[in-house]
Each structure stands twice: as structure tokens, then as C-alpha cells.
Computed example of a mutant assay.
Amino acid sequence: MLKRVIILLVLSSILLALVLVKDHTSAPVSDSISKNQSSSKYTTVEYKITKIKGNKYYGNSEDGTDIIFSSKNILSGDKIQVHDVVICYFEKNNLGSGLVKVEKK
């Protein structure tokens, strides 16, 4: 009787170990989707440049929002003119003051 109890405990512990290992190695589908969506660190908005004054650029988006940024935010080195469309990259959770970079479309 004691041998049966020991064998049962050993087999149960092996089964438990296998279940735990399987849970840690396989990722659910919802986790992989959320990781892909969170991998994008930036929110992008397109603006059409309406005016350039000194090193300040003024632009409007299609939904009517305005933006003003300086030339230090332009990292691509492209020459931006009036009526050009630019893509502004903002920190994902900080659209108000989180402008990271601007590049010409």
C-alpha cells in the first residue's frame, strides 16, 4: 500500500510539473496581439504646412487641429516648404506636449 501511495505522489508531481512547463511556454493569442499593438511607441498625425516663419512651422490636419513646431523637431533633414504634408510622431500617451519628431511625407 505504501508503494502505491509513493508511486501516485511521484506521478502526480510529474504531471503537475509538465502542466506548469506547458503553461509557461505557450502564449495565448490575445497576449501576442496586445504585444504587437503596444510595440508601436508613437502616435502619428499628418499635417499640411500652412506657414513658415523663421524656424517655426505652422500646420493643419484634416480634422482641423493646428500644430506649431520648430525646426529642431525635423530629424530627416528634408527641406519642408509651405503646402508640404508632414508626419508628426507623438509619444503614445502624451499628444499635447510629446512631439518626438517630424518627417516629410
Rank of each mutant, 00 (worst) to 15 (best):
K3I: 10
K3S: 12
R4Y: 09
R4Q: 13
R4L: 11
V5M: 10
V5S: 11
V5K: 10
V5W: 02
V5A: 14
I6C: 06
I6P: 00
I6G: 06
I7C: 01
L8N: 09
L9T: 12
V10M: 07
S13T: 11
I14Y: 03
L15F: 09
L16I: 14
L16F: 12
L16V: 11
V19P: 04
L20G: 11
V21I: 12
V21T: 09
K22T: 07
H24D: 13
H24S: 10
H24L: 13
T25E: 08
T25V: 15
A27W: 08
A27G: 03
P28M: 10
P28W: 05
S30I: 12
D31A: 06
D31K: 11
S32D: 07
S32L: 15
I33N: 01
K35I: 09
K35H: 07
Q37M: 13
S39F: 08
S40M: 09
K41P: 01
Y42S: 10
V45C: 04
V45P: 00
E46T: 08
K48Q: 15
T50S: 15
T50P: 02
K51E: 14
K51M: 08
I52D: 02
I52R: 01
I52N: 02
K53S: 15
G54A: 05
N55S: 15
K56R: 11
K56H: 07
Y57E: 01
Y57N: 02
Y58T: 02
G59L: 06
S61C: 11
D63H: 07
G64M: 04
G64L: 04
T65A: 10
T65F: 13
D66R: 11
D66P: 00
I68C: 06
S71A: 14
K72I: 12
K72A: 12
K72G: 03
N73T: 08
I74D: 00
I74T: 04
L75D: 12
L75I: 13
L75T: 15
S76C: 12
G77V: 03
G77D: 08
G77M: 06
D78Y: 04
D78C: 02
K79R: 09
K79W: 01
K79N: 13
I80P: 00
V82F: 04
D84H: 02
D84Q: 03
V86I: 14
V86N: 00
V86P: 00
I87Q: 04
C88H: 01
Y89V: 01
Y89S: 15
F90P: 02
E91F: 07
K92I: 07
N94A: 10
L95N: 06
L95K: 10
G96Q: 15
G96N: 14
L99Y: 03
L99D: 01
V100E: 02
V100P: 00
V102N: 00
V102T: 01
K104T: 02
K104Q: 07
